[in-house]
Simulated assay, not measured.
Amino acid sequence: MVLRLLIPLLMVVVGVGVAAADLPKTAGTVNHCLDCHPLHYPERGSCTDCHRGFAGTKRLNIAHQGLLAARYVAFTLPEHPLAVSGRQLLKDYACRRCHRSGNQGNLLAADLDLAQQTRRPEELEESIRNPVLFMPEFHFYESQRIALVNAILEGGQTVPPPEQEQPTVVHFEGAEVTREFQFEKHCGGCHRALTARFGGLGHGLIGPNLSGIFSEFYPQSFGDEQQRWTVENLEKWLKNPRKVRPFAQMPPLELKQDEFERICAELQHIPPE
């Protein structure tokens, strides 16, 4: 009780000037966060509403359990520049072509809505900085990585039960492909793609990553009018890329009809007949 009375008095002395009624509390207990940290955004409730952790104890190892650093809580302020930037980066770089975030996207790789429940924000940022096999090297700046982590945390605030199974295919560097895929044969030298049925295909880094190419989450980059990639559009592109985009560097690719259909089946996650 004495501590609760002393905190607002001390804050007035140092110039903060916040009334005792404005001090955020946690479950009716004293907010010990204020023993060390100045109060900000009092209208948003308790410190733990944004930063998580546990405010009802002075034991730092307990109080800081699951604590979110300030740079990772911009998502709690929807109009914060980091929150706005993160949402735009998530869209511009088509993260949902492989991941689910905000209950939207393909499940070709980790579900970001669920990953944040078992991974610290620092780990999420590191996974963006140092991507795993088959994840593109985006070379984001630190500020971009922090913005993306904020977008991931924002998307997973309310996570419904998953509607489909999580990806279970594990990829190893240098592993040999034991089955003949038309994508590997004709496209894999320049491109890579994650597929739900066959896992990762291809090994090239010259061309763009084609994971989820036929889905709504893939960048609309076909032609000058920025159209979606469909089976028909892919066929036009392969027959004569420069007819679609005059300065395209990719040469035409001659394929038999059954070879083209097999490639589309592998990319669409439909087993070939």
Rank of each mutant, 00 (worst) to 15 (best):
L112N: 05
D113W: 11
D113Q: 10
A115Q: 10
Q117P: 00
T118M: 06
R120F: 07
E122C: 01
E123S: 13
E123I: 00
E123T: 12
E123A: 13
L124Q: 03
E125L: 11
S127H: 04
S127L: 11
I128L: 15
V132L: 12
V132S: 14
L133W: 01
F134D: 04
F134Q: 05
M135D: 04
P136C: 12
P136V: 08
E137F: 07
E137G: 03
E137I: 02
F138H: 11
F138K: 02
H139M: 07
F140L: 11
F140V: 01
F140N: 01
Y141V: 00
S143V: 06
S143E: 14
S143G: 02
I146Q: 08
I146S: 01
I146K: 01
V149F: 03
V149K: 02
V149T: 07
N150P: 06
N150H: 03
N150C: 04
I152D: 01
I152A: 05
L153W: 03
L153T: 04
E154P: 01
G155A: 05
G155H: 09
G156C: 06
G156W: 07
Q157E: 14
Q157G: 02
T158E: 12
T158M: 03
P160K: 09
P161L: 13
P162N: 10
Q164T: 15
E165C: 04
T168F: 07
T168W: 09
T168D: 14
V169G: 01
V169H: 14
V169T: 15
V169S: 08
V170C: 00
F172P: 00
F172V: 14
G174A: 06
E176C: 00
E176T: 09
V177H: 10
V177P: 04
T178D: 11
R179L: 13
R179I: 13
R179V: 15
R179N: 07
F181Y: 15
Q182T: 12
K185C: 02
K185Q: 15
H186K: 13
C187I: 10
G188P: 08
G189Y: 02
R192H: 07
A193F: 06
L194H: 08
T195F: 07
A196R: 15
R197W: 08
G199D: 12
G199E: 14
G200A: 14
G200P: 06
L201M: 14
G202D: 05
H203M: 02
G204D: 08
I206R: 14
I206W: 08
G207W: 11
G207D: 10
G207C: 06
G207M: 11
P208A: 12
P208R: 03
L210E: 12
L210R: 12
S211N: 10
I213C: 07
I213L: 15
F214I: 13
F214S: 08
F214Y: 14
S215Q: 09
S215W: 08
S215K: 09
E216A: 13
E216D: 15
F217G: 10
Y218R: 09
Y218Q: 12
P219T: 10
Q220R: 14
Q220I: 00
F222S: 07
F222M: 04
G223C: 04
G223H: 08
D224C: 01
D224E: 14
Q226E: 11
Q226M: 10
R228D: 05
W229I: 05
W229L: 09
W229M: 12
T230F: 05
T230A: 07
V231M: 10
E232G: 10
E232P: 01
E232Y: 06
E232C: 00
N233I: 01
N233E: 05
